[in-house]
Design a protein around this nucleic acid. Sequence first.
RNA 1: GUGAGUGUAGCUCAACGGUUAGAGCACUGGACUGUGGCUCCAGGGGUUGAGGGUUCAAAUCCCUUCACUCACCCCA
Length: 421
Amino acid sequence: MKITSIKGFSDIFPGEVETWQWVEQKVREIFTFYNFAEIRIPIVEKTELFSRSLGETTDIVEKEMYTFADQDAKGTLLTLRPEGTAGVVRAYVESEMFKIEAVRKLYYLGPMFRRERPQKGRLRQFHQIGAEALGRSDAFIDVEVLLLLSDFFSSVGLEGAELQLNSLGCEQCRPKYRERLLDFLKDHDVGLCGNCRRRMDRNPLRVLDCKEPGCGEETKNAPSILDSLCDPCREHFDLVQRLLWQADVRYDLNSRMVRGLDYYCRTTFEWKSSQLGSQSAIAAGGRYDGLVQELGGPAIAGVGFAMGIERLIMLLRMKENHAPAGPLVYVAWVSEKARGWAFPVVHRLRRQGVLVEMEGEARSLKSQMRRADKLRAPLVLILGDDELDKGIALLRDMTNKQQEEISLEKVEEVLMLRKAN
RNA sequence: GUGAGUGUAGCUCAACGGUUAGAGCACUGGACUGUGGCUCCAGGGGUUGAGGGUUCAAAUCCCUUCACUCACCCCA
């Protein structure tokens, strides 16, 4: 029986991996420019970290986490991280970073795991790029984070992503809004789909972004969270919008946008694209002012986002060719003696920085030429017994079909020269 | 977890229940005895996802199972 990969876990092969490397390079460039520093955190954490920060009743915690017992005596429950924010905040609190410098701007990049049914734009192991700004509660940092994302998108040439913006309020105003909404929904529950009637108790906000047309109709006049914000939240959100406007970043207000994790408050946002299929969010995030404290730290605010790399790459559509440079010289050999002569030469050339590839098996010269052509090598060094006897090698220029004889002693020298050009 | 769709050569796909399951691309070789792209010719490559059933006969129909895809749920 052939062993296959796990459902929802995929390989990234050469050809595609170059695009990943290019994206990662852009991340480092842009994020560093905004003074975000990379942090690398473990892929496995204690289960409790996630259940406490994401919320016990979220889908992720209830049914999507890869959780297992450690081999220690207590059988400590461990979980493959389903997202990055919890781990970053844990590291921030645990290392007491805030004592030295309360404000930290961090980013990370790596695999996340959620046991969902795979579909377009959704895998069980997927990759996220995330940024977290800890220690500031002002609207300016919310917008700085949004501008970072926006600049990143333009640096990779992403077009057609739309920003949706909302505010979820704080512990003061959100519970009040929740009550108001619930009252409204109770009066209208006849027109709601079965799904939404179930949603009412668990997370009434979610009823608002139900895809059923009937539910949309029924909740058309539902109270909006944006009309229910308390004064500080209102001012915060107004400033966010004013700054975005100033920075020329377009957005749509969406008071029905819900975030999946419990820790969000105030500003939340989502970048969406219509070209992604049903899973349309490419990046999403928001403010999480209570999280640091929830994880045992001081009352320190935070704001951040996560972006799905697979989804991002789907949208980039390989506009640019990120393939690495092919070999400068392809060495074709037609006898074992020639191969034996060429092998150490190839090695020496590589050590001197010349990109050389050499045929690996005894094949016709024709097929070796084909291979060289396919690799787009501009030069082919041809070696056979005839040449060795004469003390020469043939150097063919693939672009103009010119071929010259060079003495064996000069091969390295000549190729070094070609490299320089 | 629920629902639908699809599984045939390395890839993209054909084949009314009826000869030996084909084509394009890719690969290998030849035309060009040791020279790439274009063209022409030839060749290799398949347990038709797996297992069972119906039938004189199954890639084709039925059942089971597995995998993939898309959607719901939910989310990056």
